Computed example of a mutant assay.
Amino acid sequence: MTTLLDDLAPLPDPSMPFITAERLPPGVGPVARYGDPIWCLHPLIENPSALRSRIHWANFPDSFREECRYLAYRLVNDELPALFLARRSAAWRARLSADCCHQTVLHWAELTKWCHWNGMSTLRDLPGDGWLDYHRFVMAKGLSRSSVRQRLSSMQRLWVFDHTGRCPLGIAEPPWSREGCDDYLPAASSRGENTTDPISPATMGPLLIWALRVVEDFADDILGAWRECARMMAVPKHGDNEVGRPKLEAYLQILKLMRLPVPTIQQGGGTGFATTYIAGLTNATRSQVQHALDADPYWDKVKDSRPGPCPLPVDVTGSLDGRPWAEAIDFEEAGVLMRHLGTAAFIVITYLTGMRPGEVLGLRSGCCPDPAPDAT
């Protein structure tokens, strides 16, 4: 539909990406087009722990949709003017994160629905004193001081991105933009800034000590087991490997003659043959292993009566109280131990550096190399 904005501003082409090339991190995937009904903000998010947000334009009343789409395009790609920031507190940022952009646009959607219910068809219809009516609407929700502040700040960004555009709609400036937000917020809570109890030293001390031990003493063994497990997982599933067949036959013959348990894994609530593990040991394909085990009824009986472990052929070098910390690492344990190692490394980095969890999770291998030696 035609809107006031069509007459005022040259809109971006609907087929162009809604994120400009300057804003995109290197190597990101496809970006939604400006005219798409949904904008995925994933390309702007480098933190793997962050929420993956989407802007659904169907949430906006029809007559307001294109106005807000254009202002959201500016919100995502442009910075707030330095002159505007100079008169604001240090908490204001020139550019928001992807999640904050999403929250801001959600607040805009709430505003446009309120405007629509009150008989308006464009953001220009909201008069300066109309912001006071909107403020009463927000306060009636009984929101926290922080939630109200977020909404009022979102309206300031709406106004400034329109006010500084090439062809502004003429949205009225909210009064709290001139006067400050304090008088428009609920009373401050008596609760302190940090409402989460700190972790007790009696808990944090042992946790950090054992995290350090896992990283410093056990990491080499865990990483070696993980590499060996990955090698076994890469063994072809199908085919007839002439080199692996005699090794497979010899391996199974030894298990049978010495009455040793057959390697098994737990799957589907029952016990199954560890075909991937056996294939990795013998260099046979998984289909060869399965065929050899199915061909002899002996193995089904052994699987149920004498199920065996799957120790990886990796030496355990780490010690605990002067003894190896494990006799062997099992094929099924490798993935679990890798998660434990990652958790231990996360605890060590966050505690010793003070970095936020999202910053730690965003680190990449090689981002902190050993310093090159110099004359000193």
Rank of each mutant, 00 (worst) to 15 (best):
P14M: 07
P14D: 04
P14A: 04
S15G: 14
S15N: 14
P17W: 00
F18S: 01
T20D: 05
E22T: 14
R23L: 03
P25L: 00
P26F: 03
P26C: 02
G27R: 10
G27P: 06
G27C: 08
V28A: 13
P30N: 02
P30E: 03
V31R: 00
A32C: 08
A32N: 08
A32G: 14
R33F: 08
G35H: 09
G35Y: 07
P37L: 10
I38Q: 11
I38C: 04
C40Q: 15
L41T: 02
P43D: 02
L44S: 00
I45R: 11
I45E: 11
I45N: 05
E46W: 03
S49D: 13
A50P: 05
A50H: 08
L51G: 10
R54W: 05
H56F: 09
W57L: 04
W57P: 03
N59F: 01
F60S: 05
P61K: 01
P61Y: 01
D62V: 07
S63Q: 11
S63I: 06
S63N: 14
F64H: 09
R65H: 08
E66I: 01
E66R: 09
E66M: 12
C68N: 12
C68M: 06
Y70I: 04
L71W: 09
A72E: 01
A72M: 04
Y73E: 03
R74V: 05
L75Y: 06
L75T: 07
V76P: 00
N77D: 08
N77C: 05
N77K: 10
N77A: 07
D78G: 06
D78S: 12
L80S: 03
A82M: 07
L83K: 13
F84Y: 12
F84W: 13
R87H: 14
R88Y: 03
A90L: 14
A90T: 11
A91Y: 11
W92I: 01
W92T: 02
R93V: 11
R93N: 09
A94M: 12
A94S: 15
R95F: 13
S97W: 07
A98Q: 07
D99H: 15
D99K: 15
C101I: 14
T104E: 13
T104P: 11
V105A: 05
V105F: 06
L106P: 08
H107P: 02
W108M: 04
W108R: 02
L111S: 13
T112P: 04
T112E: 04
T112W: 00
T112V: 12
K113R: 15
W114E: 03
W114Q: 10
W114M: 06
C115N: 08
C115F: 02
C115P: 08
H116K: 06
T122W: 01
L123E: 00
L123H: 03
